[in-house]
Amino acid sequence: MTADQHHGCPVTAAPAAPSDPNPKLDFGGTTPYEDYVHASVLHSLQRTATKEPLEMSFLVVTQVMELYFGLISFEWRHARERLRHDDVPGAVAALRRSTGQLQALRAAWRPISRMTPREFNSFRDSLGEGSGFQSGAYRHLEFLLGEKSASMLVPHRAVPALHAELTAALAEPSLYDETLALLARRGHPVPAEVLDRDPAGAYVPSPGVEAVWAGVYSAEPGELTELGEALTDVAEEFTRWRHDHLLATRRAMGAKAGTGGSAGVAWLEKRAQRTVFPELWTARSHV
């Protein structure tokens, strides 16, 4: 018996040192990293239309944003599913993850926002009528937040699979709709006209929902308060992303008309004024 065993402390053998401390280099084919990440595919997708070096930066950043749109959409759909099953902690966890992803998405504006008007205009014409306004993944995000409009399906009519996906998303309850349904199941007096409304329509703020949130926040903190705060974090970061988009556009091109036929800065200013999950903000005045 060793001294350590005598005093009740079991002796743990030290892990064996690897026979070769160097990483494995020969895999006899593609690397496991390539097989998992498909990095070569990602790096093959940048096809610039001009010889301007800054176009590459613009294109890569835009593609990174698209990847984040898809990731955040995944998290919000997961959160919505958890809410349907009354799993508030699971929903909150997904919303918290998406908050960090939204912060990274916001940071993606920095390379674009530092372009001078001359630099941006050096390749802008190559975009033609292309515009982020036409992003199907971004539109899915807005639908999940409850910002619904059937007219936003029009740009995607020529792509049947995407059009069908967005049409289904338009008709589904939003993340906020599922939150209010959960509050009603927990005994909170969410108005019937809110619960029974057509989910394909734009959400209209309700004094009754405002009163429900005021009650949640006036009570002792619990998982519904955590849910409210997680949703508010999402709303805040999404609003900041819109504001960053507005500032980047204003700095790079001023008040010029946007690509894709939009009004440019004027359109973005209008969108930036929208409030996500409105009663979560107004209810705070009554607590």
Rank of each mutant, 00 (worst) to 15 (best):
13 A>D: 03
24 K>C: 10
26 D>C: 05
31 T>G: 09
33 Y>H: 10
33 Y>V: 10
42 L>M: 15
50 T>K: 07
55 E>N: 07
55 E>Y: 04
56 M>Y: 03
57 S>F: 05
62 T>C: 02
72 I>H: 01
76 W>I: 02
78 H>T: 13
90 G>H: 08
91 A>N: 13
93 A>D: 09
95 L>Q: 04
95 L>A: 06
101 Q>L: 14
102 L>M: 10
103 Q>E: 14
105 L>F: 01
105 L>D: 01
107 A>W: 05
114 R>F: 01
120 F>Q: 09
129 E>A: 14
129 E>R: 10
134 Q>E: 11
136 G>V: 07
137 A>K: 11
154 V>A: 15
165 E>P: 00
172 E>K: 09
180 L>I: 07
193 E>A: 14
196 D>R: 13
198 D>A: 15
200 A>D: 06
200 A>E: 06
205 P>G: 05
206 S>E: 08
208 G>E: 07
208 G>A: 10
211 A>Q: 14
214 A>V: 11
215 G>C: 06
217 Y>G: 01
220 E>Q: 13
223 E>Y: 02
224 L>K: 00
228 G>N: 06
228 G>S: 11
234 V>Q: 08
239 T>W: 04
244 D>Y: 02
249 T>N: 12
252 A>T: 15
258 G>W: 09
264 G>E: 05
265 V>H: 04
267 W>V: 00
267 W>S: 13
268 L>P: 00
270 K>S: 14
273 Q>E: 15
274 R>P: 00
274 R>T: 14
277 F>C: 05
277 F>A: 08
282 T>I: 09
283 A>S: 15
286 H>D: 13
